[in-house]
Design a binder for these strands. Sequence first.
RNA 1: GCCCCCAUCGUCUAGAGGCCUAGGACACUUCCCUUUCACGGAGGCGACAGCGAUUCGAAUUCGCUUGGGGGUACCA
Length: 486
Amino acid sequence: MEQVRVRIAPSPSGNLHIGTARTALFNYLYAKKNNGKYILRIEDTDAERTSQEYIDNIFDSLKALGLSWDEGPDVGGEYGPYTQSERFDIYPKYAQMLVEKGFAYECFCTPEELEAEKEEATKNKQAYVYSKKCENLTEEEKEKLRAEGRKPAIRFSVSKAQKAFHNSSMLKFNDLVKGELHQDMDLIGDFVIMKSNGTPTYNFAVVIDDMLMKISQIIRGEDHISNTFKQILIYEALGAEIPQFGHLGMILAPDRSKLSKRHGATAVSEFVEKGYLIDALVNFVALLGWSPSDGNEIKSVDEIAQDFRIGELSASNSIFEYDKLNWMNSQYIKKLSLEELKERLKPFLEKYDLSELTEEQYSRMVEVTREPLTILSDITDAVPYFFGENVEIEESVKTDVLAAENSKKVLKEFVERAKNWSFDEETLHHKLEEFRGFFKEQGIKPKETMWAIRAAVTGRTRGADMCAILAILGKDKVIKRVNQCL
RNA sequence: GCCCCCAUCGUCUAGAGGCCUAGGACACUUCCCUUUCACGGAGGCGACAGCGAUUCGAAUUCGCUUGGGGGUACCA
């Protein structure tokens, strides 16, 4: 296949999952690296589980991730429509074609009959394979069943395909990331390709769509490996060219189970709401399975694309640990310009009245509080003392710091002196230095001196640079708070 | 149960027979810087799942065992 065409095909039965995001990323990277096209297709054959809300979420998240698609439901393209529910009229034709070629047949079995077969198999400790009892139904028998009101599903005949295209029962393909994979076709039961309600099953719809959309490489999670064998059989029966497959390890939770809500966020949008930067998220997720050749792990999508080789991806599963994500997010926060950071922080400062601060004061506040931020939402608890007249004093601060005799001495002296200071940072810096020196001679450590002031003004023992805090708050508020404390 | 995939520090990984007394990153930890927290800097701790086989030589090849994951639907 000359043109590289890859796709991401989420099914809108939930918000865009972080695992799907990673699959999307690797497809995007592959397309980028190979000058190919990257296509978005919505797989909504199961009407029960799809909702517009999820579709919107998937679009928004994918866009936010910066993985823009060349063809898709919204932007269109040569091979549309790109939403499976809008393609329902094209699947029956191909199913019919397979029936005519003898690679598929109508099946009238009821769910109960099928269930019984399955139970029988488990009882005998055998792999369940459909009995094929409908494969050789005569026209009369079919008519009779139809007359009973039964609606047939269409099943793919694995044995027919095997006879037509293979010498042995071993089906093999060369996976882009895992190497040679194989499966005994005798263990693949005749699977349904068209449901009795006339809609295609997943395995059938994907093949038809990927074929028609000329997809050249299919990169997806390894939970699809078993589907791949079925799909290869369909391609062969259709006489279509078989694309290359690449199966990625899965993302697991720290307890090695599937990543789910009980482990925290799973959707990209949830991470964003929590204060993760989308660039950090993408970078982090890329590192699950891929590693940079130069050892520098902080990289943009474009940089990763240059360095991306699908064969070098890890074949194993990887565990999603927050530690590294957090570190990475903090690195990306550090790289943000002050202006950008000021904007991004606003959603997390809604509980405060930002109008209390001038633009300059807000800038300075962000500047002096940004250092320890891991996620944007950390700002919420980092800045309460910049707002309001009074300040809430932490219990431990009251008992440990403020109760100390030295603290009272320091604070009294502070009020006396500060009255005459000009509250700009430069002056404060010098004055406080003098101030510390004054107490040091009396045997009070600089640290203690500063703690007393910090405790009285912010109610805490830790926080941003003291001079900046004092300057932003201004003389009146500072003295008021200290007096109140005394 | 049956089938498939995977297996290097706690985690993400480098490593494609000798360059490995196994390298990096995160986490943890020690020290330094410092008016606090943090940031930053310099160190430290820490792994080839087990057993066999091939080979002069194996983390790297093969087999078995164990462990983990996935699939087993008229879900996708």
